[in-house]
């Protein structure tokens, strides 16, 4: 009994420092940001005068912020969809081929090891928006060289679909990661299940369709949550590709608007409001997932 209590005390002593730091530096600051978001704070001097939801109202009425939200939506959909499809496709291909798996797995996974800023610098050059003339570089030059000059386009400078070009860069970076998730998932499926399906006369396509894919659902869910929280908070990649958010904010996202609003406009209240909106969006994605997986742990 005494032993047990001592263990508990020891555990508590070990937990307290990290719990305290997380409490202050994560939850404390989340709370402080929420407080600032309903304040009038403009300029460098803190001003906590309560103004209700004025900052939020202003934001939602702004064309610029609406564009930001639209951009985030486009990016999230394209980025997640392409990453999942490409990742799954690559995982299945690797699962089928016998030789060179390690080699290709490493190749596809490597981009993930690079920081978004580095990727962004390279893609900034690849996505050069010049479509004709002597100043072509990157993808548009490639298109001209192979005789597909008509396909050259302004990429991230496109007023409506610039975000797709950014999603392209992000996909390049993270579809290998999704591939690894799926590959691990596929390998986790007992061979007997596939074997028995084969015995029952299922074609390979049917095995993937009816056996493997349904069993991969938890992996997909996890991948969506991870990709989703990355895409909602994306900042560094776009800042490196297009520091001012493209043409007419074509690739500006809320996190970038927050940066400019806060540090160029010195509107701390409004900047904090953007942070709170982002926080809510990410919570909407992550909390159901956490609850879901916690419940499963408890069941186990």
């Amino acid at each position: 009994m005494r032993r047990k209590r001592r263990d508990r005390l020891g555990a508590l002593a070990l937990l307290v420092p990290s719990a305290l730091t997380i409490g202050v530096f994560v939850y404390g600051f989340v709370g402080w940001t929420a407080r600032v978001s309903v304040s009038r704070w403009r300029g460098i001097m803190p001003d906590y005068t309560f103004v209700g939801f004025d900052n939020f109202m202003t934001l939602f009425q702004q064309d610029r912020f609406q564009t930001n939200m639209w951009n985030t939506a486009v990016f999230t959909v394209v980025f997640i969809a392409v990453c999942l499809l490409l990742g799954l496709g690559l995982a299945i291909l690797l699962d089928r081929s016998l030789r060179g798996e390690t080699f290709f797995r490493t190749i596809f996974l490597f981009p993930m090891a690079i920081s978004f800023v580095v990727t962004g610098v390279v893609w900034r050059w690849l996505l050069n928006p010049v479509t004709e003339g002597t100043r072509l570089t990157g993808l548009n030059l490639l298109l001209h060289e192979v005789g597909l000059g008509a396909l050259a386009n302004p990429w991230h400078m496109h007023p409506q679909w610039g975000m797709v070009a950014i999603a392209l860069a992000a996909t390049w970076q993270l579809s290998g990661y999704v591939m690894a998730l799926y590959l691990a998932g596929i390998r986790g499926i007992p061979e007997q299940l596939r074997e028995s399906a084969r015995v029952d006369g299922a074609s390979e396509w049917q095995i993937y369709r009816r056996v493997v894919l349904p069993l991969l659902r938890p992996v997909t869910l996890g991948a969506v949550v991870i990709l989703g929280h990355i895409s909602l908070k994306i900042f560094d990649l776009i800042m490196a590709i297009s520091p001012e958010g493209g043409r007419g904010f074509s690739v500006e996202v809320p996190a970038m608007n927050m940066w400019f609003t806060t540090f160029r406009g010195l509107r701390f209240g409004r900047g904090a409001a953007i942070a709170v909106i982002l926080f809510i969006l990410v919570s909407l994605l992550v909390i159901p997932y956490l609850r879901h997986s916690l419940r499963r742990e408890v069941e186990r």
Partner: peptide, 18 residues
């Protein structure tokens, strides 16, 4: 002021597209 400048940049930045 920085606030005014930020609004100005916002307006001009959007204008380049619309």
């Amino acid at each position: 002021s920085p606030e005014w400048m930020d609004d100005f940049i916002s307006a001009v930045g959007s204008f380049v597209a619309h």
